[in-house]
Amino acid sequence: MAFGPFLLLATFEGLLQAAILTLTALGLSLVFGVMRVVNVAHGEFYMLGAVIAWWVSTFVSSMFGMPPAVGFIAALIVSPLAVGAIAMVGERLILKRLNYNPESTIVATIGMLYIIQQSVLLTYGPDARRVAAPFYYRIQLPWFGYSGYNLFVIAAAAVLLLIVWFILSRTRIGLIMRATQFDAETAQAFGIPIDRVYSLVFAAGAMLAAIGAVLVVPIRQAHYLMGLDPLLLSFITVIIGGLGSLRGTVIAALLIGLSDGIISVFFSPTLAKMISTLLVALVLVFKPEGLFGAKAR
């Protein structure tokens, strides 16, 4: 294949990777930024999003005989809400009782990771299951074909990103979140219910991961172990971008997604993983707060 089309394919692949990564990493970064909680169970919320999407879409298509698009849209609504509710329960029952202590919450979320993963294994089973894409359209370029749905995922992620940005910077609830992130104690003194903000943020972080998963599940399948890879990549992204910095997260996700896509296509996926891990090491050595992270106050 000639260089031009090769690069085009690599860019498509990279953008797709970046789109999903942005959504998952954004959730992780939001939770850390506001709550100072390193959520190791984040990848499992992603996995739950995909598994619930399978349940919902299968239910809709088998009970009502609806076309796959209806099932997909139902999944896109139900799955993030369900995952958000589960995350909120986890936050109330576990993280709150640990007073959001940074060390304890790491261990607690590792526990949540295994509880969620094994519960899914017990109920959903060990198989990879397919969710039908809402539409199937193959774009034939002169050199290769590409799935139209993949391009839709990239666009949808961009739109969602804009919505998140709007909520955080232009709405009252965003202002409250930012105030809590900046200084929780002062915010509380001004009458902001920190407690409820924490619940909401933890649920919102999980919902972002779930939305990413619903978008991706027609491309990859729903499987109980699918949360591990996104967790690792999300951590790499937020470390490079700076924990808690949304702008940094988005830029780092684009950087990692594109470089991963392009290096994977031109060289090898293993090399791409090595380079991103090396980048994390370099960032940690020379700029521990991340490329866009604020210095610890």
Binding site: L9, E13, Q17, R220, P269
Partner: peptide, 17 residues
């Protein structure tokens, strides 16, 4: 292809014409 790989399009351009 690594056995845990979840995406394959990136390997396909290496198939010679």
């Amino acid at each position: 292809v690594p056995p845990t790989e979840t995406s394959f399009t990136r390997y396909l351009p290496r198939i010679p014409a």
